[in-house]
Computed example of a mutant assay.
Amino acid sequence: MSAYTVQDHLKSSFEKSGTGSRGELVAQLFFGHYASTPSRSGAWLVRTGWR
């Protein structure tokens, strides 16, 4: 897979998600999935491997 192919896929992902960079995309995915998970005292951090 060439660097151009990867760049095209990223560009498509940015357009679909309404983001403009890899950092924004990762933040949107993280906060949309993990931050919305109910937890007590950071239980989701341990459950997902984030410490």
Rank of each mutant, 00 (worst) to 15 (best):
residue 23 G to F: 12
residue 36 S to W: 12
residue 20 G to P: 01
residue 43 A to G: 03
residue 49 G to D: 01
residue 4 Y to G: 10
residue 27 A to Y: 12
residue 11 K to S: 12
residue 32 G to M: 02
residue 30 F to C: 06
residue 32 G to L: 04
residue 23 G to I: 14
residue 35 A to I: 00
residue 11 K to F: 07
residue 19 T to W: 08
residue 49 G to I: 02
residue 21 S to K: 10
residue 4 Y to T: 14
residue 47 R to Q: 12
residue 14 F to C: 11
residue 49 G to P: 05
residue 44 W to T: 00
residue 2 S to Y: 11
residue 17 S to W: 02
residue 50 W to D: 09
residue 15 E to P: 01
residue 6 V to Q: 08
residue 10 L to H: 01
residue 34 Y to P: 00
residue 33 H to C: 05
residue 46 V to A: 09
residue 16 K to L: 13
residue 10 L to E: 09
residue 5 T to Q: 14
residue 35 A to N: 09
residue 32 G to F: 02
residue 49 G to W: 00
residue 32 G to S: 00
residue 6 V to W: 05
residue 29 L to F: 09
residue 17 S to E: 15
residue 25 L to V: 05
residue 33 H to A: 15
residue 25 L to P: 03
residue 18 G to F: 07
residue 38 P to D: 01
residue 17 S to D: 15
residue 22 R to E: 09
residue 9 H to I: 07
residue 40 R to G: 10
residue 5 T to P: 02
residue 43 A to Q: 08
residue 12 S to F: 05
residue 11 K to I: 07
residue 20 G to I: 04
residue 5 T to L: 13
residue 2 S to I: 10
residue 4 Y to F: 12
residue 42 G to E: 02
residue 36 S to P: 02
residue 9 H to L: 15
residue 42 G to D: 03
residue 17 S to G: 01
residue 1 M to T: 09
residue 14 F to P: 05
residue 51 R to Y: 07
residue 15 E to N: 10
residue 30 F to E: 02
residue 24 E to W: 09
residue 34 Y to V: 12
residue 49 G to S: 00
residue 35 A to K: 04
residue 41 S to T: 03
residue 50 W to Q: 07
residue 14 F to E: 07
residue 20 G to Q: 11
